[in-house]
Computed example of a mutant assay.
Amino acid sequence: MGDWKRAVCYTIFSFVFFCLYSGFSTVWGQEEEEINPKKLFEYHCATCHGENGKGTKRGRELKAPDLADSDWQAQKKDEEILNSIINGKNKMPRWSDKLKPEEIQALAGYVRKLVPKKRT
């Protein structure tokens, strides 16, 4: 095979390999996924806090706060919410072992959004 044919074949092979690798990296999860705080909350927190933050029967038995209560929200600093998620509190488990720091930040922000909007 001539040198120019070998060069063309090598170029085509390299291009195809690069394209396939780029496509597979997305499929195999090598690209970072966008964090969905609502889904994180539903998966990790809703068992006790309920999907709306108001609490479930189990959560009330464990004395979990009503996260949708505007008075509770007003009393809590962002750092306190973060600390509770990271280290746990009372019967609540620590999530720092299972969640990434950016997921914990997203959850804390989501907790702040659980307060029903006041109608004007």
Rank of each mutant, 00 (worst) to 15 (best):
L99D: 04
Q75Y: 10
A106W: 12
G55Y: 06
A64W: 07
K77H: 15
D78C: 12
R94A: 09
G29Y: 06
E102I: 00
G53M: 02
K57I: 11
E79A: 15
L62G: 09
N52K: 11
S84A: 13
F24E: 10
R60L: 14
G88C: 01
K38H: 07
K89D: 01
R58I: 08
R58C: 04
G53W: 01
E79H: 08
M92N: 04
N87I: 06
I86D: 12
D66N: 15
S25W: 14
T26C: 11
N36A: 04
N36G: 02
P37F: 10
G50I: 00
C45D: 00
C48V: 03
A106S: 10
D97G: 14
A64V: 08
K76D: 05
L62T: 03
K38M: 06
E33L: 14
K39T: 06
N90R: 08
L82P: 09
A106I: 06
M92W: 00
L40Y: 05
S96G: 08
P65H: 07
K54R: 10
E61A: 11
D71T: 09
A68V: 01
N52H: 06
N36R: 09
A74T: 04
W95K: 04
E61H: 13
N52S: 15
E102D: 15
Q73I: 02
V111D: 07
I81N: 03
D71V: 14
E61Q: 14
C48Y: 02
N87K: 12
Y43P: 05
K100D: 09
V27Q: 14
D69W: 05
K38F: 07
E32N: 04
A46P: 01
P93S: 03
P101G: 06
H44N: 10
I85C: 01
L82Q: 09
E31R: 14
F41W: 06
G53Y: 01
S70A: 09
R60I: 13
I85H: 01
K57S: 07
M92Q: 02
G109W: 13
N87D: 08
S84I: 08
M92V: 00
K91S: 12
Q75I: 03
N87W: 10
A68H: 00
I81G: 05
